[in-house]
């Protein structure tokens, strides 16, 4: 039995996994307003896969304190979350579960692919790869990529800012000054 090559296809997503009913009141201004509200209270899902998950935890804890940017409510259930941070290596055995979790999230929903593993297989993208999915974007649509192995918490925060920009079309926070030395 061959196990090489990309093992999981996009068809894993069931029909309607992206589908959202059109809003009842569809006025641009109202939508814009809602988008700002959404982007300022993103609820990520507690979904740690590997090493990167620890940095994700660190981002939410003391010092980095993601709560400052409105995203501290980590929910254990996908049904209460609207951002999925794929933090770590997705393996062949885990792939169906990742897809199922994504499908269980109510829309509108976003995905942050955190770490090299989730982006491309990272350090595990080797010739004889038989178990690691090379990029979570082969399974589910990804909105923001945060590279690093693991990305520093600052990196993840920057990823969140990017996501907020994606939702509202505007960056809300000042750009960090460059540190010398």
């Amino acid at each position: 039995m061959a196990a090489q090559g990309s093992v999981v296809q996009k068809e894993m997503l069931t029909a309607g996994a992206h589908y959202m009913d059109p809003p009842i009141v569809n006025i641009q201004l109202a939508q814009d307003l809602l988008d700002v509200c959404r982007s300022m209270s993103l609820w990520p899902m507690t979904f740690g896969l590997a090493c990167c998950a620890i940095e994700m935890m660190a981002t939410g804890m003391a010092r980095f304190d993601m709560a400052r940017f409105g995203a501290e409510v980590f929910r254990p259930s996908p049904r209460q979350a609207d951002v999925m941070i794929v933090a770590g290596t997705v393996t062949k055995k885990m792939a169906p579960a990742v897809v199922r979790l994504y499908e269980q999230m109510p829309g509108p929903k976003w995905v942050i692919s955190m770490g090299n593993c989730a982006i491309s297989g990272g350090p595990f993208k080797i010739k004889d790869n038989y178990n690691v999915i090379e990029g979570v974007d082969t399974l589910i649509p990804v909105d923001v990529y945060v590279p690093g192995c693991p990305p520093r918490p600052e990196g993840l925060l920057e990823g969140f800012f990017q996501l907020q920009r994606l939702i509202t079309g505007k960056r809300w926070w000042p750009v960090a000054a460059e540190v010398k030395g």
Binding site: M1, A2, A3, K92, K93, D128, Y130, N131
Partner: peptide, 9 residues
């Protein structure tokens, strides 16, 4: 994986 029962890496 269960599907890889006959594959020995």
């Amino acid at each position: 994986c269960v599907e890889d029962v006959d594959f020995h890496p």
